[in-house]
Each structure stands twice: as C-alpha cells, then as structure tokens.
Amino acid sequence: MARLRTARLARSAKPFLARGGPRGERCPGCRLVPSHCVCSLHPVVPTRAGVCLLMADIEPLKPSNTGWLIADVVPDTLAFGWARTEVDPALLALLADPQWQPYVVFPGEFVAPERVVTEVACADASAAKRPLFILLDATWPEARKMFRKSPYLDRFPVLSLQPEQISRYQLRRSRRDDHFCTAEVAGLCLDLAGEPQAAQVLQTYLDVFTHHYLQAKHQLPPDWQGEAHQRLAQALGRTARA
C-alpha cells in the first residue's frame, strides 16, 4: 500500500488534497493527523485467507481508503494498481501461484450465472488451496469498468456476497445502503472463509478508524475508552488504552 502511494505521488503534477477530511500533517502509517493516530492499536490476526487489492488510480492517496486497514489486519494482503492497458507481472504471478484459489468479489447480478458462487469451497483448513479474495478497490462506476476490462480475471469464480447487514461506513457517501466499503467487504469474505475473529477485528478496527477520522475532522479529541475501542480490545483480548 505504501509503495503504491509513493509511486502515485511521484506521478502527480500537483499535491493531492483530500476533500472533506482533516487538514494538515498526517501520520504516514494510518493517514490520520498525529494527535489522532491509531498506529498504537494496529491489530494483526493470522489468517489462512489472503486478500488481493486491485486499486483504482487515486485510491492509494485517499486518507479515507480502507484497504490500508485490511493490510494492517490480514498478513497476506497484497495491493496492485489497476490500469486498462497493462498488468503488473507480480499480480499475474500471484494469481498463478498454486497455493491460492482466487475469488473475484463482485455482485452476481452483473455476472454470467455459471461463474457465480456464494460460498468459499476452500474455507476448511484441510483444503489444498487457500482462498484469495480479489477486491476491486474503487468507486462503484470504476469497479464495474475494472471488472469488465480485466480479462485475466475471467477464469476465476465470482464470489457474490449476500449480506443482510446495512453498511455502517461513514467516511464516503453511497446512494445505496448495500454498497459496502472495501474493509467491510473483506470482513464478510473472511467470515465465509471461516475466519470469524479476523472478520470481527477488521470490522471493529474500521469503526475505531472512522471514529478517529471524524473526530479529527471536527477538531475533537478521540475517545480512547469509547465503545468502538472497547470492542476492538475485546476482540484482540487486550485492555483498551486509558
């Protein structure tokens, strides 16, 4: 993620200015202002599943991007920039690695029925292959374009999520409640892969990050003993910071 951000900044003709977020210096680790940094809370949960993020052009630059949170929690998270005309050879090597069974995570209503699955066949620890969830980290219009114009993904099953919950993500607006942010999608995938603790930690870490981001935006201190922090500490078996 940091590599992608550095490379994207190097290509920029002018500084990237995030809209609507907190201003000023930011922590290079969590992209929050230093007074609201969450790096001390950085949770890591060993998982059998992996995540592959295909990121639209400016996503690595957005402080509100939640792909970073997935990379914090899930050790085997790899991120690649997406371009219509070229493919990173490292991405193709990852997709060809025999240890992984890739799943493209995308709504089934837009896909040929024969490609759609709703369960993760290799969720069992005894399965020969580990699940690798390919997430298109982009706005919805960008994600649809990425899906259509990435023929190297065509040979993989499409995991269509059927979540009953409503998105709680507050940092960007969507016209539909069933449009989830990238971290929420990853959490649902981890649940299907038989990784409930990692799913819970990722969701509560997202809630903590959202709290710190919004508090910084409104120039208010974070509540280190708040409900989100307590849930994250409980999920990790820790004590919330005083």
Rank of each mutant, 00 (worst) to 15 (best):
L192K: 10
Q200H: 14
R168E: 13
F147L: 02
Y169R: 06
A125K: 13
P151C: 01
T182S: 15
A128H: 13
A199W: 05
P131L: 07
R130I: 00
C189P: 06
C122S: 10
A127D: 04
E184M: 12
Q165Y: 02
R175I: 00
T210A: 15
Q200N: 12
D178N: 07
A198Q: 11
R173I: 08
M146I: 02
R173M: 07
D154W: 07
A127R: 03
L202W: 11
G194F: 06
A127P: 06
A143V: 05
H179I: 02
T139E: 08
A186T: 02
S160W: 04
R130W: 08
L206P: 09
F209R: 08
S150G: 02
Q165K: 08
S174Y: 12
S167C: 09
P151K: 11
P196S: 13
A199C: 13
L188K: 03
I134L: 15
C189F: 10
T182G: 15
T139C: 15
V185C: 11
E195A: 12
P141D: 04
C122D: 09
D178A: 08
L214C: 03
L153W: 14
P141S: 06
E195G: 06
H211K: 12
R172I: 04
Q197F: 13
P151N: 02
Q165N: 03
L136A: 11
T182V: 09
L214N: 12
A127N: 04
Y205M: 04
A143D: 09
V158E: 10
E142K: 12
E195C: 01
Y205S: 06
V208D: 14
D124Y: 07
A193C: 05
S150T: 05
L214T: 01
K149G: 02
S150N: 07
R144K: 13
L206A: 04
A123I: 00
F133K: 11
I134E: 10
D154T: 05
R172M: 09
H211Q: 14
F180T: 00
H179D: 06
L202Y: 11
L159W: 04
G187L: 07
G187D: 01
